[in-house]
Design a protein around this nucleic acid. Structure first.
Lengths: 345, 345
DNA sequence: TTGAAAGCGCTAACAA
DNA sequence: TTGTTAGCGCTTTCAA
């Protein structure tokens, strides 16, 4: 029995391995980090000793000395489940095989955000973060992150596009296209359901709709603009309110798919057939748009790809490479069964 | 100029704060950890110095010395987005205000799992993990976790219920109830769409169906049992195959809601009305069951609550408290519009 | 190609 | 009530 004993948790350290292999701790470190200048014989001995002792490097110690936690955060405000999962899977796809881990940081609401991000900065020891809306548009968050030396990349920001690496689609053009498609089918009385007003996409998409109406020479009815917040429930409520109002319309432009599906339910309850009596249009091409009935005509926004690219931008910065500053991702009009020409009458 | 200078990252340490406040590092540590035995005057000075230096504790250093990363993992195999999000939100709800962070660890498939979990053990420095199916049923994973000293709690395990803290519903009874309900309406030719065979819930739910059939004295048609894997697509495919087969049936028992919605699509494409011509039954009460049309009759499984409880069990262990070993959560039959008595003919 | 010494920023244990 | 001394397990000098 020597005076030195393994710590109670029984976890072997680099020193134990070194002792067992008859080398210094530094040499063990070299082997485990794949550094050059270790003779193959020594490396072999070290590996055997490590295996025998069931040694695994302590990430916490590594993190302390290297100042790298290998933790990447994903900050988002809970929209629909499928959007969140697309986002996460995209980031994870890029992190895979990279030694980085994903920490999810959903924030409940605008008001909570400030405190939430302070907490994020102070306590989470993140190396970098991917910011989804609306955090991606918050100048204060960007400033705090930069001040704390936390790398970031953004999904769908609309302001200060150059402030941090960005991944975008052209929301205005996309909204214009889909509205033009609807108007092109002959619709003239078109309702709109807006998303959360704190998300900049809400304004951009509305601007795109307006451009399409202007180009078609159709007046947009301001009293047919309902307010939602990107959820199924708010889409349902907004559509129900519009349908209960005095003004008739033959199509609804919802600013995302969840609200479009909510509107679908409201239409059914009002006894309307979709698309024969009422056309319903979404945005995002999220899973619900594909599994609803009828399936929703929408704009495909490559959330997964955007998340992959954002994660890549964060990693590039962490590795000292220059990240791409701004990637414009392609959107696409997806025509499905929820839209038809307006009823003859 | 002293010889000692702040590190380039400019981040103040506990020593800098101590120097500025005229106290030792340990005293600063006491203040920041809310320990007793610090006079209010000193505490005040320390706080002011910390604020002036923009000091924030280094979590990595804390983690090293306390042997706590404050990271909790969530291991799951990607089922539907709404299930995943329910799970995450449940864990996060319990972690909120607890200084723990959630690291998501989706594993692609059974085969990947072993290596994935080895990686988890070795590299992620997790304090604890919540295991969703099918990881929650894997004895090897449980053994490895225990060996590594990582606390765990499980969602919906079916084997070795006492091996680690568990959260369950009574899948057999639940499946029996919903099948009994369908048989009670008069259905006799009932198809089944199974979930992923590697998930134990698949077997349990089938067993429950069988019990109901036996109790009703109805023979279960083995050639009406289709294989799915819990996804919308597999539900669609399995239902389409059954509908294309020779044998008629008036109801489909799908083992989750996603597959039920897939079956709904297949029924529509086959020109069948749901529920007039064909009843469709799901399981889980996930979001899709509420937003589909018709809405799906299903069994409510409180995934969110189970995740909250599982996170609580992990935290209890980390704090040295005795966790609850086994919580049986209540399920509930949710009757909606996708089921009707069999057509008269 | 290898090792010794120093220290990352913090806290536990003890002393004052 | 406060401070001192040792590390946590690893990597980074720098020397051999």
């Amino acid at each position: 029995m020597k005076g030195q004993v393994l710590a109670e948790p029984g976890r072997a350290t680099i020193i134990d391995v070194g002792r067992a292999a008859g080398v210094s701790a530094k040499t063990v470190s070299r082997v485990f980090n794949g550094e050059r200048y270790v003779s193959e014989g020594v490396a072999q001995r070290v590996r055997e000793a490590a295996a025998a002792l069931n040694y695994h490097p302590n990430m916490l110690a590594r993190a302390l000395v290297s100042r790298r936690s290998h933790l990447i955060g994903l900050v988002y405000e809970r929209p629909s489940p499928s959007y969140v999962v697309d986002l996460q899977e995209g980031v994870l796809a890029r992190l895979k095989d990279e030694r980085y881990r994903l920490v999810v940081i959903p924030v409940a609401s605008m008001s909570e955000r400030a405190a939430e991000v302070v907490g994020l900065l102070r306590s989470a020891a993140l190396d970098g973060v991917v910011l989804a809306p609306p955090a991606s548009d918050d100048p204060r968050i960007l400033a705090d992150l930069a001040a704390a030396g936390i790398r970031s990349a953004r999904i769908a920001p609309t302001r200060d596009i150059e402030a941090a690496p960005s991944n975008l689609i052209d929301d205005i053009s996309a909204a214009r296209e889909i509205a033009a498609y609807v108007l092109g089918l002959g619709h003239r009385d078109v309702a709109v359901i807006l998303g959360d007003p704190t998300h900049a996409a809400t304004d951009m998409r509305l601007a795109g709709y307006r451009q399409a109406f202007a180009a078609a020479g159709v007046e947009m009815a301001e009293d047919l603009i309902g307010q939602g917040a990107f959820s199924h429930e708010t889409g349902y409520a907004a559509a129900a309110a519009l349908l209960a109002g005095p003004r008739r319309f033959t199509a609804i432009l919802a600013q995302n798919d969840d609200m479009a599906v909510g509107a679908l339910l409201a239409a059914r309850e009002a006894g309307l057939r979709v698309p024969e009596d009422l056309s319903i249009i979404g945005f995002d091409d999220s899973e619900v748009s594909r599994i609803s009935w009828p399936r929703i005509t929408t704009i495909r926004q490559p959330v997964f790809d955007m998340a992959v690219a954002a994660a890549d931008m964060v990693i590039a910065q962490l590795e000292g490479r220059e990240p791409r500053r701004r990637v414009q991702h392609a959107h696409q009009l997806i025509i499905r069964e929820s839209v038809a020409p307006p009823p003859a009458g």
